[in-house]
């Protein structure tokens, strides 16, 4: 049987659409990155201008910090929530649905609501914390250099841990019962089940979900942009927002394109390393 061409026929429609709407933008971005506003070729000038800006390295480290910090907590909380939601208790169905809410709500809604809650004067969070005596006086959560990034990470974790939770929950539910039975025969307790059955069995799901989170994280604009726009003093400036600012606020599409090309290359390397690291271990993404 000619499996070769049959497979291609199945794949082709999606590929054509993607090629049309993705390949062209990529090529165009590449072109913009080596030309000036008038379209004349300028070599690597745009790249050196971007690399020379003080904000660029700062944004790069902020991106790693934001994406890395978010993912660790998203995965930990998401998995913990999944294990909890896999228990039997009354109202489990409702709790499962409620857990999904943060993920379902539009990013812009989440951002405006949280920004409102974290407001220094009118925000409910300062009110609650000063009232409970946790903090002596209101904190400028979103304006204090040392709290703003953790707060944004927390909001981002809140937004996306439910996604990890459902994916892991689906994985947990597909664990065959005989594995638990066997463990039970050996007298395993709950925590032993978690570490010897559940986590190993959902490892592939977690690995896959983490890759998604990396990709989304590297491309997330809405939450930070809506809350701080990268401020104060670039403390929360991440590279995607720097690109956005360069292009749409500074009208410098050529430098924005140059930064995009570099960012894309770095992102690609990170993803390739991640996939390679996975491929070399057993239990790879199925």
């Amino acid at each position: 049987m000619d499996r070769n061409s049959t497979g291609l026929v199945f794949v082709l429609p999606a590929l054509i659409v993607l090629a049309m709407l993705v390949a062209y933008p990529v090529a165009y971005t590449g072109l913009l990155s080596v030309t000036d506003r008038q379209g004349a070729f300028v070599g690597l000038d745009n790249f050196s201008a971007v690399l020379g800006a003080r904000a660029t390295p700062q944004a790069f480290w902020n991106t790693l910090w934001f994406v890395g910090g978010s993912i660790v907590f998203q995965v930990v909380f998401g998995t913990a929530a999944a294990i909890l939601l896999n228990q039997n208790f009354i109202g489990r169905g409702i709790v499962r649905s409620i857990t999904l809410l943060p993920w379902v709500v539009p990013g812009i809604v989440a951002a405006t609501t949280w920004a409102w809650m974290f407001h220094t004067e009118f925000g409910i969070i300062n009110y609650m914390m000063t009232g409970a005596g946790v903090i002596p006086e209101p904190i400028g959560w979103l304006t204090n250099g040392s709290t703003v990034m953790p707060v944004l990470i927390a909001i981002n974790v809140w937004k996306l841990f439910p996604f990890v939770a459902i994916m892991v929950l689906a994985g947990l539910q597909s664990i065959p019962n005989d594995l638990y039975e066997a463990a039970r025969v050996d007298g395993a307790n709950f925590w032993q089940e978690v570490f010897h059955i559940m986590l190993p069995q959902v490892r592939s799901v977690i690995v896959a979900v983490t890759l998604l989170l990396v990709i989304w994280g590297l491309n997330s604009i809405t939450i930070i942009y809506a809350i701080t726009r990268g401020g104060p003093a670039n403390r929360t400036l991440i590279t995607p927002i720097q690109i956005f600012r360069l292009a749409f606020e500074s009208t410098n599409f050529n430098q924005a394109a140059a930064l995009s090309v570099m960012f894309f290359a770095v992102a690609l390397v990170i993803v390739i390393i991640y996939i390679k690291a996975l491929a070399s271990t057993p239990g790879e993404v199925k």
């Binding site: 204090n144 250099g145 104060p232 003093a233 403390r235 360069l246 606020e249 500074s250 410098n252």
Partner: peptide
């Protein structure tokens, strides 16, 4: 032509002072 980026640099400076 780089006015926005210029004001951004200045604004970042103001925020560094306020911080």
């Amino acid at each position: 032509k780089n006015w926005i980026q210029i004001t951004q640099a200045y604004f970042d400076g103001i925020q560094r002072i306020l911080l």
